[in-house]
Amino acid sequence: MMQFKENFLGRRQLMLAALLSAGLGKAFAQSGGVSRIIVPFAPGGAREMPARAIQQELSQETGQNWIIESKPGAGGAIGTAFVSKAAPDGKTLLMAASSHFVTAAMGARPFYEPVKEFAPVANIGNQSYILMVNASVPVKTAGEFIQYAKSKPGVLNYNSAGVGSSTHLAMAYFAKTADIDMVHVPYKGTAEAVTDVSGGRGNAVIVPTAGVGVYLQDTRLRVIGITSKKRSALLPNIPTLAESGLAGFHFESWFGLLAPAATPVAIQEKINAAVNKIIGNKDVKERLLALGMDSPQWNLDAFNKVFLADRELMTKIVKETGITRES
């Protein structure tokens, strides 16, 4: 009886393995339970917006019910680590950005390895960042702000969405390049950081172009520059920081989906094809443009090259700015 049981279990396991292998593509296309895009920051932030922009179409295209779930904490490390340990079945993805590499670059042990434990599967959109000051700050341009900050070393402060966030990194990089000394005040999210600058409890903040429209309507804030290489088609009247005296300066970010590294390439390709089809749709393109994003359609190889290049760039910026977990 024991021998029969062992033989039966062995055959059963082999059959299951064969079925899983043969039915990989079919299983992906079938609806089956809930699939999740994990946002490793608080709800309502810039990281969530591109995921929302494609959520409905992704469910339709893949035949799976995709939900967006926030798992904030530890500068994004909690949600990111959760995805790194998730089943590699294409049903749990991370909504990531270029700042994905920053925690490790700061020398921290984030409970995950940002390259080895993830597969970049689909980019949704690329964006730049807007530099804003409280309207009481007596400047109209980024050049004037740089000179004003230089006259008050260590006096002015800037808010961010948290230590190691893209908003922190972008502002620290700007300050380093401009050779100005400002005090960093970290918050739990972009909305809180901007609210306190708007209310006069902060002097400056850099925010993603995603969702920036609401801030442009606030008369207590003044927009003085954009971090892109060239002026934005959506915001053509905002000069680049390079135009304002920081020759060659730019800071941009991709927003895309990462899967656990062991996810089969067949599943990665299906997600990549689905997202590329979605962001190629005119309505979705306009939706992303309204968020301040363009939407290049990268295949797996192209996204992986950008992913690895950004690791080098973000590590370089962290090193040059001296950002630490206590910054």
Score class of each variant (00 low, 15 high):
residue 75 G to T: 04
residue 65 N to L: 03
residue 12 R to S: 08
residue 9 L to G: 00
residue 80 T to L: 02
residue 42 A to D: 12
residue 31 S to P: 06
residue 98 S to G: 11
residue 108 A to E: 07
residue 84 S to M: 01
residue 4 F to E: 15
residue 105 A to C: 03
residue 94 L to E: 08
residue 94 L to P: 08
residue 31 S to N: 11
residue 77 A to I: 05
residue 110 P to E: 09
residue 108 A to R: 06
residue 36 R to G: 02
residue 65 N to F: 01
residue 22 A to Q: 04
residue 105 A to Q: 13
residue 51 A to K: 05
residue 41 F to C: 05
residue 33 G to A: 10
residue 79 G to N: 05
residue 76 G to Q: 04
residue 100 H to L: 13
residue 25 G to C: 03
residue 104 A to I: 01
residue 58 L to Q: 07
residue 69 E to R: 10
residue 42 A to K: 09
residue 19 L to H: 04
residue 99 S to M: 08
residue 67 I to D: 05
residue 40 P to I: 10
residue 18 A to E: 15
residue 27 A to Q: 05
residue 113 E to A: 13
residue 22 A to F: 04
residue 31 S to V: 02
residue 42 A to T: 15
residue 16 L to Y: 01
residue 71 K to M: 13
residue 18 A to T: 14
residue 72 P to L: 04
residue 88 P to I: 02
residue 22 A to C: 01
residue 78 I to P: 00
residue 94 L to W: 06
residue 42 A to V: 14
residue 11 R to I: 05
residue 87 A to T: 12
residue 10 G to D: 10
residue 81 A to D: 05
residue 110 P to K: 02
residue 35 S to V: 09
residue 5 K to Y: 00
residue 10 G to Y: 09
residue 3 Q to H: 10
residue 50 P to H: 08
residue 56 Q to H: 11
residue 15 M to R: 14
residue 105 A to W: 02
residue 55 Q to H: 08
residue 2 M to R: 07
residue 24 L to Y: 01
residue 59 S to R: 02
residue 92 T to N: 10
residue 43 P to V: 05
residue 62 T to L: 03
residue 29 A to E: 10
residue 97 A to D: 15
residue 114 P to H: 04
residue 87 A to W: 03
residue 49 M to G: 00
residue 99 S to T: 11
residue 47 R to A: 13
residue 88 P to S: 01
residue 62 T to R: 06
residue 92 T to Y: 02
residue 18 A to R: 12
residue 100 H to Q: 08
residue 74 A to Q: 13
residue 6 E to M: 08
residue 72 P to C: 08
residue 4 F to K: 15
residue 85 K to Y: 05
residue 86 A to L: 04
residue 60 Q to Y: 00
residue 115 V to Q: 14
residue 54 I to C: 03
residue 113 E to D: 15
residue 85 K to C: 07
residue 87 A to Y: 09
residue 42 A to C: 06
residue 78 I to T: 15
residue 7 N to Y: 07
residue 85 K to T: 15
residue 60 Q to A: 13
residue 75 G to N: 10
residue 71 K to E: 12
residue 29 A to T: 11
residue 93 L to V: 03
residue 14 L to D: 12
residue 75 G to A: 03
residue 82 F to Y: 14
residue 102 V to S: 13
residue 94 L to F: 00
residue 88 P to D: 10
residue 15 M to A: 14
residue 27 A to M: 09
residue 29 A to S: 14
residue 25 G to E: 15
residue 101 F to T: 13
residue 68 I to H: 11
residue 40 P to L: 04
residue 74 A to E: 14
residue 86 A to T: 12
residue 67 I to M: 07
residue 88 P to N: 05
residue 20 L to N: 11
residue 66 W to Q: 06
residue 43 P to M: 00
residue 44 G to K: 03
residue 11 R to T: 07
residue 50 P to W: 12
residue 15 M to Y: 07
residue 93 L to I: 05
residue 59 S to I: 02
residue 62 T to P: 00
residue 115 V to C: 03
residue 83 V to E: 11
residue 19 L to Y: 06
residue 68 I to D: 10
